[in-house]
């Protein structure tokens, strides 16, 4: 695990810790208010996704957060140890259910993001990319 990485238990109460971690990284990178807001909220959403839909609140599974900077971009990885999750397909209609908006917000808040299965250790990585040069 790199120096920037942390691991959190799979509980709803720990999702706030993911946001606090993101605040620290934003401060470390000297980001402005808008970038700070979108990184914190996107990391919160990805961490909630990992806890609820990836690890399914399993007490033995962890959520791993890591970040790096590359050429004016901040790249955050949120990894779970679950069996994968299937994002709800776009319906073209307004979602009037209580859930299913996390990836919509992530798509809006990031400059790009990917969801990929990982083999070792098994799990899913959601990689969030933020262009901080604007």
């Amino acid at each position: 695990m790199g120096g920037n990485a942390v691991q959190l238990p799979s509980g709803v109460v720990h999702i706030d810790e993911a946001e606090t971690w993101a605040e620290t990284l934003a401060e470390t990178c000297g980001l402005g208010e808008d970038d700070r807001y979108r990184i914190c909220l996107a990391v919160r959403e990805a961490a909630a996704n990992a806890v609820l839909h990836g690890n399914r609140l399993h007490p033995g599974k962890r959520v791993r957060l890591d970040w790096e900077t590359q050429e004016g971009r901040v790249r955050v990885t949120v990894g779970d140890e679950g069996d994968g999750f299937t994002p709800p397909p776009p319906t073209g209609k307004v979602n009037l259910t209580p859930s299913g908006r996390g990836l919509v917000l992530i798509d809006h808040l990031t400059d790009s993001y990917t969801v990929a299965r990982r083999d070792d250790p098994p799990g899913t990585d959601v990689v969030l990319v933020f262009d901080t040069t604007a």
């Binding site: 919160r44 959403e45 909630a48 259910t97 908006r101 996390g102």
Partner: peptide, 16 residues
């Protein structure tokens, strides 16, 4: 100050 997807979901539930 902040609302996340769960908060938005709760607004929808309240409306419903």
């Amino acid at each position: 100050t902040t609302i996340d997807s769960s908060g938005i979901g709760e607004l929808v539930s309240a409306y419903t």
